[in-house]
Nucleic acid binder design. Sequence first.
DNA 1: ACGCCTCATGAAAGTAAGTTTCATCCGTGG
DNA 2: CCACGGATGAAACTTACTTTCATGAGGCGT
Lengths: 304, 304
Amino acid sequence: MAKSPKISASHESGGLIVHISGLLPSLSPAEQRVARLVVADPADAARRTITDLATAAETSEATVIRFCRSVGMDGYPQLRIRLAAEAARRVEPPDARVVGGDIPPGADLAQIIATIAFNDARAVEETAEQLDPAVCEQVVEAIVGAGRIDVYGAGASGFVASDFQQKLHRIGRTAFYFPDVHTALTSAALLGRGDVAIGISHTGTTSDVIEVLEQARSRGASTVALTNFPRSPITEVADHVLTTAARETTYRSGAMASRLAQLTVVDCLFVGVAARNRARARKALEATAEAVQSHRVGSGRRRG
Amino acid sequence: MAKSPKISASHESGGLIVHISGLLPSLSPAEQRVARLVVADPADAARRTITDLATAAETSEATVIRFCRSVGMDGYPQLRIRLAAEAARRVEPPDARVVGGDIPPGADLAQIIATIAFNDARAVEETAEQLDPAVCEQVVEAIVGAGRIDVYGAGASGFVASDFQQKLHRIGRTAFYFPDVHTALTSAALLGRGDVAIGISHTGTTSDVIEVLEQARSRGASTVALTNFPRSPITEVADHVLTTAARETTYRSGAMASRLAQLTVVDCLFVGVAARNRARARKALEATAEAVQSHRVGSGRRRG
DNA sequence: ACGCCTCATGAAAGTAAGTTTCATCCGTGG
DNA sequence: CCACGGATGAAACTTACTTTCATGAGGCGT
């Protein structure tokens, strides 16, 4: 046979629909009916079985197959998945996600979710973009070589500090976190050369954290600041400054996006440190995971 | 038959892949093999015939069909076109960013940062996509009407629980968090009808948290579970189930991305609750912000 | 330990979908 | 009028998909 032309199966990848409507006039009447259905609603066509589509086009399955070949497909299933893919691609991104702004008063949950997720994701991405690998490297270096690591933070940043402490601890580094300023100051006073003190403050103006970091520095420890504002007071007492890039919404609750950004930075440092000695880190992680195993139910796969 | 529960075919519209990876641990071994293939390369899977896929997963066609049903599809063809659509929608990961995977041994800091940020951002976005606004609404409703709210969580999820508690507290809701199981149990025993208990566990298998939630439920409180796995044990003791969508890797068992996903959900709930009474919430926030004002330096402009 | 039960699983039977073949139809040009 | 060629659908055929069922492994209570 070898008659069906099979128009350029090669490079119409960018627009099957366009391609089809382009060669619509060159198709036989019955095939055109099929083509029109397909072009009109690709997603719907993808859902139909070949018999279904044939019936809808008032023709036979054979014609549908011929149509497939005419537009360069191997067969109906291939057309189907291509159509599905095409249809999915042309869905435009969600409407009005408020960027960096406040949540509008009348917003419903779906809007709130979309807005928050969008801003959270952006904060993470933008933070990563502006993060200086060189500075990270220095910080990782310092942590790896440190005898002891203190992590300070208050309020919402306290959670992040605590999280970082726990992470470092899990891979066998001696790390501390203090929820209380006095204790933190006491600890800072005992730091020395080669130790590391990390202060986390979104605004960079939390006096408690600054004070403690200052103390640590005066004792010879390397100091690191993690803040959203590169020229805030905390940066003045830090040897290394890492910044987040969260544009907080007006609902400045507890600094929502900034927490995530901070955590992302923490993750990077953590992995950086862990990567310095993969074997040891992995072993430590496995050991700690095993330790809590007895507090888990359904060891195997879970189900109802 | 009527055995495979067919988890929420309703609201996984936003992310089939995500949905599948969430269900992964609850699947049988053979189905898991299929699932892994599908998740690893949806586009490729969409191209395969059922026999082909079965062979690749070293199992029978029957298992593939079972897998389809398990993830809420009618049959294989439907899965196929959904996969094709999904694959088309997703932008492929830029260059060498390992998606959901491990950081390669030789990676430098810049690579580590890019990879982590990418995965973190994805976890946030995908979580938002699959989050059911209706369930969120119910939870918000419950919190708004609650006399008291207990938030439980252990390990990494403990930070999230604590964060949520603090947020709720800041807008004037009576919320508690307990780092210790015994105290938590004691508290749960004192809950009653109209109160809310929220349990956070990434794996959904943390027995401590489950136990406490169960206790709370038996006392008549509304129970909420926040987990990555929609069919994990914790969901059995929860009236409302909220899921995150972090594909955590084995190595990074510090549950990095999942924390961010959890926090995003927490943020959504928080804003949802706050939106119920904007005036009051705003006033409360301002009051609390003012309270820590004396602990800030350089009240004026910070930043550049 | 034993038997019971449940569940996972693939073989095979059964059904539906997709593909090919082929006879028919229709219009066209000799 | 007949030969011809393309379009078309019926039906045969093939492949893909789905269901049923027997088997066997693993857990659970006795």
